[in-house]
Design a protein around this nucleic acid. Structure first.
Length: 479
RNA sequence: GGCCUCAUGGUCAAGCGGUUAAGACGUCGCCCUCUCACGGCGAAAACCGGGGUUCGAGUCCCCGUGGGGCUACCA
């Protein structure tokens, strides 16, 4: 059995979007699962689309996501170079060979003639005009230095079929395929050609790519056949959609991997989530580490239909990862976001992290959750009202002075003892625990919702600030 | 327009001729509870339509409808 070799062949034209990452992930997972190799190749044959920095983003993203390749531009390998723009001579040689084999031909048609072939809707295929040129004519034109391209010679009759691992049998009539350009006039190959040559030369056994190539695969097979090369196994992936009609893409400003990380989604959750977009394991598990994915990945679990990227679910997964994370791991992930809060550095970090851990799903929620520690000012008395607690501003006027006196002396000034003391206070005054606790919490924070109860908030603020705020709250109430 | 392809709750997604049509997210309700959250329990919610095939169809076939893709000297 031949060793499995898969590849991820992105075009460095910008950010790495989720769909791209998933293609890379599946290629990686399949190779790992089969004990094979995963290769990174850069498809930069279109100089017009080159975007500076895009290559680095690809390296960084893969590395960050834990997708490691065995061969690639930056690490080398036996089939290099792994950058198509550095392989121009190779494509030229193979294109010429394909011409000799009858699978392609030189074409000297200019733009005007080509445009003339199209109808008012811009539809119309090449008419094989230059295929009829004699060998001498071609030689003469070449010698005269006329610009040319090399076109694929697609049969006018018959059809091509192949068995896709996820979509099953796909057949396309040759008459529906145009004689596409393989080698451009600038000497660079088009994707259609480079991809075939490279996949063969790099020993790729399984081609994993988006479904947009489903119907053009027969023409690639025509080339494999003409060269006498073994066709790879094809695995086409359904698209990931932004909504029912639009594919997820950076062009639309949709979330890229980097964006998601910056928003504070846990990386492992992102990888986990995109693995589940278009694929599911036999046992239907959802939360899986990369290592687990490597174990359970299977082609048979790949779906055919497009799936919509659902941020709420990713959010949930991210929260799951946070909850089961160690304190230390959470601390290091949370710190940069903690630093964005005004409260940063002014409170016991361990205590902050503790109350945050079960309340945060994405790290960027952190600042807003603790800003009340530093943002405090007059607030609406209506906050004291709570039907279930049976509390309101009037109750607060009674509770707060008592609480202030009490809290001045509680030792230690910690959650448990504070809670106990406040409950005792409630009892002594014939009140419900909630009446005291609710009022104190509101007085201390000025917020309807806070990441913890009255006693936790008090501990966090410390005695001094707690008493200050109680005073201030009393002042707001006009007491 | 032509060609390829897809179609189970709002979303992801099991199912691969016989099921009360899983599960997860989200939503809603209840419990826990010092708010929020966590945790626990529960509910609502789906086989695009029409023809076949079959004793029996979400599952197979055809047509329709709707979606996506390709139809570039882009990948």
């Amino acid at each position: 059995m031949k060793k499995v070799r898969t590849r991820f062949a992105p075009s460095p034209t910008g950010y790495m979007h989720i769909g791209n990452l998933r293609t890379a992930l599946y290629g990686y997972l399949y190779a790992k699962k089969e004990g094979g190799e995963f290769i990174l190749r850069l498809e930069d044959t279109d100089s017009k689309r080159f975007v500076g920095g895009a290559v680095q983003i690809i390296y960084d993203t893969l590395k960050d996501a834990g997708i490691v390749y065995d061969e690639g531009p930056d690490i080398g390998g036996p089939c290099g170079p792994y950058v198509q723009s550095e392989r121009a001579a190779i494509y030229k040689e193979y294109a010429e060979r394909l011409v000799r084999l009858g699978g392609a031909y030189y074409c000297f048609c200019d733009k005007e003639r080509l445009d003339g072939l199209k109808d008012e809707n811009g539809v119309g295929r090449y008419d094989k005009h230059c295929l009829r040129l004699s060998e001498e004519e071609v030689k003469a034109k070449l010698a005269a230095g006329e610009p040319y391209v090399i076109r694929q010679n697609v049969p006018e009759e018959g059809s091509g079929s192949y068995e896709d691992m996820v979509y099953g049998k796909v057949t396309v009539e040759f008459k529906d395929i145009e004689d596409g350009i393989l080698l451009k006039s600038d000497g660079m190959p088009t994707y259609n050609f480079a991809n075939v040559v490279d996949d063969h030369l790099m020993g790729i056994t399984h081609v994993i790519r988006g479904s947009e190539y489903l119907s053009s695969t027969p023409k690639y097979n025509l080339m494999y056949d003409a060269f006498g090369w073994e066709r790879p196994v094809y695995i086409h992936l359904p698209p990931i959609m932004k909504n029912a009609h639009v594919k997820l893409s950076k062009r639309n400003g949709d979330a890229s991997y980097q964006d998601l990380v910056e928003k504070g989604y846990v990386k492992e959750a992102i990888v986990n989530y995109i693995a589940l977009l278009g694929w599911s394991p036999k046992d239907n598990r959802e939360k899986m580490s990369l290592a687990e994915l490597e174990q359970s990945f299977s082609l048979s679990g790949i779906n055919k239909s497009p799936s919509i990227f659902d941020e709420p679910k990713l959010r949930w997964l991210s929260g799951e990862y946070i909850k089961e994370m160690s304190e230390e791991a959470f601390a290091s992930l949370a710190r940069p976001f903690l630093a964005k809060s005004k409260a940063y550095g002014k409170y016991d970090e361990a205590k902050l992290l503790k109350i945050l851990k079960t309340r945060v799903e994405i790290l960027s929620e952190i600042p807003a959750k603790i800003d009340f520690l530093e943002e405090y000012g007059k607030f609406d008395e209506a906050l004291y009202y709570n039907k279930k607690m049976k509390s309101d501003a009037e109750i607060a006027k009674q509770v707060l002075p008592l609480a202030k006196a009490l809290l001045a002396g509680v030792e230690p000034f910690e959650n448990a003892s504070l809670y106990q003391a406040m409950c005792a206070l409630a009892q002594e005054n014939g009140m419900k625990n909630g009446q005291v606790l609710w009022c104190v919490r509101v007085a201390l924070t000025g917020r309807e919702n806070t990441p913890g109860g009255a006693s936790e908030m008090a501990e966090l603020l410390g005695r001094e600030r707690t008493l200050e705020r109680l005073d201030a709250a009393l002042g707001f109430l006009g007491v």
